[in-house]
Design a protein around this nucleic acid. Structure first.
Lengths: 149, 149
DNA sequence: TATTGTTATACTCTATAACTATA
DNA sequence: TATAGTTATAGAGTATAACAATA
């Protein structure tokens, strides 16, 4: 057979199941890499969310959790020397979370050590990479609730 | 030809970032749908993992957590009437978790109410669905550490 | 009055270690 | 001895409500 028509279009359910399995496996790889550096997945996620300085409140938004949680998470990041709080210029109520050099270093290590993810990407052809990336980019605004008006 | 060379192949980093964003958004959609039915994401994940009867120990494996946690999670599922424990035939040490009719119903509702995910899938062409599904299937064994020997 | 960050509280999830009852 | 499930414990994440400082 040539290239046509031997494939069937997956149902929504099949696609969701496949996405869920891949998402879960990706997350486990991430959590395992973070754990090797003594970080919980929430802490590592927060670290990745402060690559540029971010106010506490905005960080809560990025992490999709209540603002009260961020206090504790940043406390622990701060006690590990991976981030610190700075006063904001204009508004004295606001505190801005800034990643430290060490934090940036650890973040890079964690990402580099997601070995299963790297292996998985390694099995893809260039064509598959292009297709996957473009689907992700296309789908993300809808999936995250930022549908363009 | 028409289809060549105008696209650039994404780097591993770009692909990982895109995957992470999609995975996180998918998970939030899942957690939000579960929450609407009074379930935590762990509880909902467990519910999805017992569509067929599963021993406690095996459930821990599926959820990727320690066996001691499963006791509490199944306790709560059981108190909500969504699953129950049964004795195993051959081995009196083993308890098997079985989903109830109500549990199956709630699980179906949760999956149906992942509206952002359904919308996101709705934006895909048939070609994209086929490509995405096949990449997921291809990548999953590597990503989840079950590389064929 | 409204907002930012924090604290207090309560519940869930998590791993480790110790326990029980089976095998 | 080894395994399945539970319990005890402690730490972390989570949301809600109340609070201080600032806007």
């Amino acid at each position: 057979m040539g290239s046509t028509a031997t494939t069937t279009v997956p149902t929504n359910g099949e696609l969701m199941e496949a996405l869920a399995a891949v998402g879960a496996a990706y997350f486990q790889d991430f959590a395992a890499a973070a754990s090797r550096h003594g970080l919980s997945s929430s802490q590592a996620k927060a670290l990745g969310a402060v690559q540029e300085p971010v106010p506490m409140r905005a960080l809560a938004g990025r992490l999709g959790c209540d603002a009260s949680n961020v206090t504790g998470i940043v406390d622990r990041l701060e006690s590990l020397g991976l981030a610190h709080r700075e006063a904001a210029a204009g508004d004295r109520r606001v505190k801005i979370v800034v990643i430290t050099e060490q934090g940036r270093e650890i973040l890079g290590l964690i990402r580099g050590e997601m070995i299963r993810t790297h292996q998985a990407i390694g099995t893809m052809t260039d064509e598959q990479r292009v297709a996957l990336h473009s689907v992700c980019v296309q789908v993300l605004p809808v999936l995250s609730g930022r549908t363009a008006p």
